[in-house]
Design a protein around this nucleic acid. Structure first.
Lengths: 144, 144
DNA sequence: ACGATATTGATAATAATTATCATAATAAAT
DNA sequence: ATTTATTATGATAATTATTATCAATATCGT
């Protein structure tokens, strides 16, 4: 059974909040997890629609919110304003390095940068909650 | 004459692109520069409207784009999705540390972080063009 | 199976920004 | 100064992404 852990997380969250299971939620979760890239709501909608033709946009958005609350999903917005959704369960925190030509991106992480951020926040009297770092440049393939 | 340099920059850009001067553009620039905080398009619109009641929203957006092209203005988007505009001419590059309670923010800059970003980009074969860094936390005042 | 409650899907509403287009303003040439 | 070509403006429609509304349906504990 693939994604058993993730199913359980969602199930637990639903029970926890006295919500209800539904086929739509199951399928949206599956499609989301099966897709190995950062989806837009529209992409998710279109893919789910193939399995559940009656699905509505609102359900996609509602379920994405639910997945976020459950800790299974994370929102990311890259420059142009499009919101994408990425897997969050068992995925380490990371930031993104995005190619401005082809849109390809890689996930990055730097403990050194994280430390420096903490330092800056403290210096200004802030208690840091989270941050957002996006690097934009041109990737190797796009430069030739 | 205040903001003489900035006026010249805009003037030069307008000449350069064979565009035309207008009172609206002058006044929008003035209001933008006079306001010592990061404005939304709406705030700018409302302030300009006091001086030029006939001003339209489209002109505000068009002129903001023009100011950005001229290097006088920079867009910044903080988490909630609202786009704000800040002074860019003769302002050093900086990032933002934002309070999630009251919305207050301070401008920050760390050469060390910048260097690390370059290093990461290079390691991944990217030539870095720009980045975006926002730190979110709770400020001193909001914690008591 | 019943009843209380939550979910769904269709659609309207919202909000921010951009496109359209007729009219007005600007700049350059006469 | 007048003309002329071109750009800018303002009103409004269109667009896009997301959220709210609400009647009909599905779920879950009894």
């Amino acid at each position: 059974m693939p994604f058993e852990k993730e199913r359980e997380v969602l199930s637990g969250h639903i029970r926890n909040k006295n919500l209800k299971h539904s086929e739509q939620r199951q399928i949206i979760l599956e499609v989301f997890l099966e897709t190995e890239k950062h989806l837009t709501a529209e992409e998710l909608y279109l893919t789910v629609k193939k399995k559940v033709p009656s699905i509505g946009y609102a359900t996609i958005y509602r379920t994405l919110k639910l997945l976020i609350e459950a800790g299974l999903c994370r929102e990311m917005q890259v420059e142009n304003g499009v919101t994408r959704y990425e897997h969050h369960y068992n995925h380490e925190h990371h930031d993104h390095l995005v190619c401005t030509k082809c849109g390809k991106f890689v996930e990055i992480f730097s403990p050194d940068i994280e430390k420096l951020q903490e330092k800056i926040a403290k210096k200004n009297g802030f208690v840091l909650e989270r941050h957002r770092l996006e690097l934009y440049g041109v990737c190797g393939a796009c430069r030739r």
